Amino acid sequence: MIHFDLTNVLRGDGITTTIIGMTIVFSGLLLISLFIRLLPKALTALDRITSPQQASASQPAPNTVPSEEEIHAAICLAIHMELERCGGDLQRITIAQRPASGSFWNSAGKMRSLSDRSPHA
């Protein structure tokens, strides 16, 4: 049977081990939080270094007027997205709707009877 005694902790360097473990965990958490905090600034600096085209982007583009096809495509996309948002699955248009055939069990019974007619089914 194991008895808990403070002298066992002191004799086995338990307090020193605890302090070292807490220091390691605290240092790891501190490094992770600093990385998360500095990540947006580092990405902004990296973006400035890797894309030198930003300086030329301040000049206006020569052809900013959209063509008629682009306008039609934007209108169709807006209508499509609005119909999906409002209707969801209920607004889907199908080519031919099946008539309501009653319950599921009724159709399952018909399928069984069809397989009984043919020996190859």
Rank of each mutant, 00 (worst) to 15 (best):
I2P: 12
F4Q: 14
D5M: 07
D5W: 01
L6F: 09
L6N: 05
T7A: 13
N8I: 13
L10G: 04
R11I: 10
G12Q: 13
D13H: 08
D13R: 14
G14Y: 06
I15E: 11
I15C: 01
T16C: 03
T16A: 13
T17E: 04
I19G: 04
I20C: 00
I20G: 01
I20S: 10
G21P: 03
G21T: 15
I24Y: 05
V25K: 09
F26S: 12
F26V: 04
S27F: 05
G28D: 02
G28W: 00
L30A: 12
L31Y: 03
I32Y: 03
I32Q: 02
L34F: 13
F35V: 06
I36Q: 15
R37A: 15
R37W: 13
L39A: 15
L39Q: 11
P40V: 05
K41T: 10
K41M: 07
K41P: 00
A42F: 10
A42Y: 11
L46T: 03
I49M: 05
S51G: 00
S51V: 05
Q53T: 10
Q54R: 15
Q54E: 09
A57T: 01
Q59M: 09
P60A: 14
A61R: 12
N63A: 13
N63P: 00
V65K: 12
P66H: 04
E68A: 11
E69A: 15
E69M: 02
E70S: 06
E70A: 09
I71K: 11
A74F: 09
C76N: 09
L77T: 11
A78V: 06
A78H: 07
I79P: 00
H80C: 07
M81C: 02
M81K: 15
M81H: 04
E82V: 01
L83I: 12
L83R: 15
E84H: 02
R85N: 05
C86I: 15
G88D: 07
L90Y: 08
L90P: 00
L90Q: 13
Q91N: 05
Q91A: 15
I93R: 15
T94V: 13
Q97I: 06
Q97R: 09
Q97E: 14
R98G: 05
R98E: 10
P99M: 11
P99S: 12
P99N: 13
A100F: 04
S103M: 03
S103W: 02
N106K: 15
S107H: 04
S107I: 09
A108R: 11
G109R: 03
G109K: 07
K110F: 06
K110Y: 02
M111E: 08
M111C: 04
R112G: 10
L114Y: 08
L114P: 00
S115L: 11
D116N: 08
R117L: 14
R117P: 00
R117Y: 06
S118A: 06
P119M: 06
P119S: 08
A121K: 14
A121P: 00
